[in-house]
Structure formats: C-alpha cells, structure tokens
Nucleic acid binder design. Structure first.
Length: 639
DNA sequence: ATAGGGTTAG
C-alpha cells in the first residue's frame, strides 16, 4: 500500500511533489505541536511516515533535502499564530529545528504574536542558541511587559556564559526603565561598562531613556553628552525627558540644536517636540513648529493631531486646537479626551459636554482619563449637577470604577461651589487610599470659602503624607491669613523656618519677539525695568479712575497697609502685563503663563487692564486658562 | 535571522 502510493508519486512534477510532502509532514506536526484545529483534512488522508518517504525516494532530484530558506520564507509570509504553528510542525518533522536560522525565526514569530509560553518552551528546547535567540526571547518578554521574566532570562544568559551584547542589553535596560527601577538600572549600566558597550548607540539610547524615566535627568544628559554619535532616536528620548521632568524650555532648546544640525526630523520626533511645546505653552514656538510640520508635509495622523490639539489649547488658542481637531480624519479616545480637557480648562464647559456627546455618537467609549477631563470641565464651569451625574454614570453606565483622581475632581467641583460638607462626606466615604491631590483639592476649597476648621484637618493629612512639601504649609497659612488669624500665620511661618522649608516662588513668563522673559514678584532685574514700573504706575492711576480697588487681603505678610499695596502692585503677573504693554504693538494679545494660581487681585487687575487698554489678556495659571476681554474673564470669576 | 523614540488627567 505504502509502496504503491510512493511509486505513484514519482510521476508528479517536482513542485507538486514537494507540496505534497509538505502537507504530509504537517499532519504529524499538528498532532505533536499545540492543539491546532485548523489542520486541513487533506493531511490526514495522506498520513504516511515522512521519514520512510524521504529515505525511499529513488532519484536524486527528489531526495534533495528541503532548503531552510523554504521554511523561513513560509514563516515570513505567515499571517496568524495558527499558521506559525502549522509551519512549526513541518519544521519538526523535517528535522529543521536544528537549523538556528529557522528555529530563531519561529521563536521570533511566537514572540511577535505574544505566544510567550510556546516561545519559552521552544527556547528551552533549543540545544543550540546564539545571540539572536537570546535577543528574541528577551524581546518577547519585554513585549508582554514581563520584566521579571526578562531579568530571569538575562540571568540565565549570564550563567550560560553568553556575552551580553548591543542587541540583548537594551531589552534589559528597558525593563529597568519600565519598572522605574534605578537601582537595577545602575547595575545593568555597570554590566554595559564592563563589556565596553557604553558607546553603542542602541545601548546608549536605552540608558538615556532609562535614566530619564527614572527621574535622573542629569545622569541622562551626561550619557547623552558622552555619546559619540547620537541618532534621531536618542535626540527624541532626550527631548522628551526634559519635557517630562518639567523643563520643556530645555526640550525646545535641544529641538533648536537639532534644526541647526543636519538632523532630519521624523514623525516620532515631531510629536515629542509638539508635546514639549504644549508643556511650555509658548504660542510663537508652537506656530514655528506648525510651520515646520507644514513645510515638511507631515500628515496629520491621530497621534500627531492629538499632540497638536494639546499644544494649541495649552498655548491659549482654543480655536486653533479645534481647527486641528476638525481636520483630523481619525480620532481615538485620546483625541476626544484631549479636546474635552481643552474646553475644560478654557472654561467652555458646555462645549466640553457637547464634545463628549459627539464622542459617544461616534462610537468611541470613554476611559478613566476622559472622565477626569470631563469632571474638571464641569468643575471649572460650575456645572455641578452635570458633574455629579457624570461621576455616577462612570460605574453605572461604563463600568469604570472611579479612582482617587475622580474623587479629587468631585471634591474640587463640590468644594468650589461651597458644598464643603458634601465634599468632606465624599472624602470620608472613600475606601481607597487618599493622596495629596485629594487633600489639596479640599484645602483649596476651604481657602476659597474661608473654612478654617476643615482646612486644618485637610492640612494635617497633607502634612502627614508629605511633611517636607512647603506648599502645604503655605496653603494653610493662606487660609489663616484670609481669616485674619495672624498669630497662626506666624506659627506656621516659624514652623517652616525651623524645618528649613522655603515657599516655592511665584513666577510669570511671557514671550516677546520669540524670547521668553521671566518675572518674579518685585522683580527689578529686567533690562527695561524702569519703563515697566513707570507703565505700572501710569496704569494704576487709570485703573483706579475706572474703579479698581486693590484687594490687599491677598497679601499674606503681616505688614502695614501701605506696604501691602506696594507688594501687591509688583506681583509677577502685573510686571509681565506692564512689560507687554511697553514692548508689544497695541493690538497684540498678551499671553502669560504662571506656575501658581493667579491671585484674586491680579485677576481683578487683568480685567480692568483689558477694559482700559482694549487688549486681550490670556493667562495660563497652574489650573486653567483665563481669557480677559473688555473687562470680563472667561472663567466668570469662578476658579 | 534580532534592536529603539510619539498623544490625554494629575
């Protein structure tokens, strides 16, 4: 029977013959490999022993062993995990697993399909391994985010006496990065040095990224500076690192350096730069970056588009943000959330809610971040009932369990509206861990509404969590000051002096002629300082005529009224506004960024300036945007 | 035969 079948095969043309043999092997493979229901029935009918078949092949053309390349290309064209398994079977029965190229390719495909257990078994079963084998299995573990697994493989690699190289080390370094494990990262860095691979661009870039994401920006920069050749990826990593650690100014400085050099930027790099612009909030820079994008014909994909929405909205230009949003063909949950957040901190609560509705209509489901944006939008626009409803709907309608961030939004929402008892009840009802942000929101609300007793409770919790953060003491002292409890203010100030805590200084910066100027309170360091104070004096007279009354309750020092007025009149945002008035043409909008929240008096001041000078003033403070126009602020004095 | 960097809140 067997003989008969074999002899009949001799008449097949070669191609058909080989195809048939291929199928025969596959059936045996299917039974030994993972359960694979997709094995064609045809194979079972031809289930003969392929070993015998090969041995008995009569003529040389037919006995030629299959080329490993044959399997490799079959694997290359495989589309699904089941196809890979099918080919795996054929590889086994043809004795091709001994071939490293074939085995590695198989391993690689399992890793790519995240079939990690299969990949791992195959890896363990391989009698011979080379550098590729190790990198591929490490890559597999890192792809599924199993960092401990990566370390285990790396240990095995060392134990087997294999040399760590420029392929496998980046995986291990990235595992440290993703776990934000600087101690492990430094150990691996030691290994890198021992094997003399510090100067390799892949290893170096991975180390820069690792240090940056572990918050060691100086070490990252040192690695970066020491690298002999920096490619675009390394640059991108470094630009992002600065933006991430709160120094977007340095990010964009690096971007300028890249532009000076002959580096051609790609989409990844541009997204990073756009995102740095968003963090910096510098409109002129944003325009330059946009021009670069247009000139170099970057297409507006979801990620780049979303980054641009964020950039324009954080530069104070909600219209341009919306232009980009409308032009984007594809939108995902991130794009929608970004647009909702944008409307939120510009105080356009209704538009935020409309955008949320449009998002639902488009069939995109909200995630936890969407709700943070949405709830803040409600909070900033005083849409209390809507906010309460959305909060409830998270779990009821979308099965999203509110986390501490959502509770924080609710405390902010209720607290600002003066519903402090409800806010406090909500905090009490929480079963999860309460963080600083939550208590800060409550404390902030207590400050607005002068609720000293609750403020003390919130501040105590805050100080327990972070005893060395000066901001918490300052907040409490603000509450006391507002209530006129100067003895308590002094007590806090003494406490801070004893613990050597210093208040974070408030600063405002402004972009004029593509240069960024920074002002602190009472600043006299600006080259045009004389003109600025002159303008301020002049301005104050006009404002007072128009009805402006300085509100010295915002001066927290316990000094004479006259001194209070002087301190108040030299707040950093007022200096920046005065500078803009002397240094820019009369129709130019004035855009400021502050690191803290705008003070109540500066808010009133800005409204009057916008009325008296006919200038539009846009202030981005730590919380949101204020658009001042013709004496009115977009926040409706509610912030 | 193997390798990397990008978007949202706080």
């Amino acid at each position: 029977m067997l003989k008969l079948k074999l002899s009949s095969k001799q008449h097949f043309p070669l191609a058909t013959h080989e195809k048939l043999r291929f199928f025969c092997s596959a059936s045996t493979a299917a039974s030994m490999a993972d359960t694979d229901s997709t094995t064609p029935k045809l194979m079972e009918q031809n289930s003969i022993n392929p070993q015998i078949h090969i041995q008995q092949k009569p003529d040389p053309p037919f006995s030629r062993p299959l080329d490993p390349q044959h399997f490799v290309s079959a694997l290359l064209h495989s589309k699904s995990i089941s196809q890979v398994k099918e080919i795996h079977g054929k590889v086994v029965v043809n004795g091709m697993l001994q071939n490293l190229v074939v085995a590695n390719k198989l391993l690689y495909l399992y890793a790519q399909h995240r079939a990690l257990s299969t990949a791992y078994l195959l890896f363990c079963d391989m009698k011979e391994r080379n550098s590729v084998t190790w990198s591929v299995i490490l890559g597999g573990f890192s792809k599924v985010g199993d960092f401990i697994g990566s370390f285990g493989i790396f240990r095995k690699l060392i134990q087997c006496g294999v040399r760590p190289d420029n392929y496998n080390l980046p995986f291990v370094i990235r595992a440290c990065r993703d776990m934000a494990e600087i101690t492990s990262g430094k150990i691996v860095h030691g290994v890198v040095v021992r094997y003399g691979l510090e100067l390799n661009r892949f290893v170096g870039a991975a180390l820069v990224d690792m240090y940056a994401k572990c918050g060691e920006i100086e070490d990252a920069r040192k690695m970066f500076d020491d690298m002999p050749s920096r490619d675009l990826v390394t640059w991108t990593v470094m630009v992002r690192a600065y933006a991430e650690c709160g120094n977007p100014y340095e990010s964009l400085f690096l971007f300028d350096l890249m532009m000076e050099g002959s580096v051609v930027l790609d989409k990844f790099a541009m997204v990073t730069v756009v995102s740095a612009c968003a963090k910096l909030g510098a409109m002129n820079k944003a325009t330059l970056v946009h021009d670069y994008l247009c000139k170099n014909k970057f297409s507006l994909d979801v990620v780049l588009g979303t980054a641009m929405i964020d950039m324009y909205s954080k530069c104070g230009c909600i219209e341009s943000a919306n232009d980009v949003f409308v032009r984007m063909k594809e939108k995902n949950v991130v794009s929608w959330s970004t647009m909702i957040a944008a409307y939120g901190y510009h105080g356009h609560g209704r538009e935020a809610l409309d955008t949320f509705d449009m998002m639902l209509s488009s069939g995109t489901l909200p995630n936890a971040i969407t709700f943070v944006s949405l709830l803040y939008a409600c909070s900033h626009s005083g849409l209390i009932e809507e906010g309460v409803r959305f909060f409830a709907s998270m779990w009821d309608e979308y099965s999203l369990r509110p986390d501490v961030k959502h509770y924080t939004c609710m405390v902010d929402l209720l607290g600002r509206a003066g519903r402090l008892d409800e806010a406090f009840e909500l905090v009490e009802s929480m079963t999860m861990k309460k963080d600083e942000g939550l208590w800060c929101a409550l404390l902030g609300a207590c400050r607005i509404h002068g609720h000293v007793e609750m403020a003390e409770r919130a501040a105590n919790s805050l100080i327990q969590l972070q005893p060395h953060n000066p901001g918490h003491y300052v907040l409490l002292s603000n509450v006391y000051a507002k209530a006129g409890r100067w003895k308590d203010v002094a007590k806090i100030r003494n406490l801070m002096t004893q613990s050597r805590l210093k208040k974070v200084p408030g600063w405002t910066w402004i972009e004029v002629d593509n240069k960024i100027y920074q002002f602190s309170s009472g600043d006299e360091t600006h080259p045009r300082s004389k003109e600025i104070y002159g303008m301020l004096k002049n301005l104050n007279e006009k404002l007072v005529q128009a009805g402006y009354v300085p509100d010295t309750s915002f001066v927290l020092q316990d000094v004479d009224e006259e001194v209070k007025v002087r301190i108040l009149s030299a707040h950093s945002e007022k200096l920046a506004i005065a500078f803009a008035l002397v240094a820019t043409p009369s129709e130019t909008p004035i855009r400021l960024t502050k690191n803290l929240r705008i003070c109540g008096d500066c808010h009133t001041f800005s409204k009057f300036v916008s009325a008296v000078t006919q200038r539009v003033i846009v202030v981005r403070d730590a919380n949101r945007f204020h658009h001042f126009k013709e004496g009115v602020c977009s926040c409706g004095d509610y912030w």
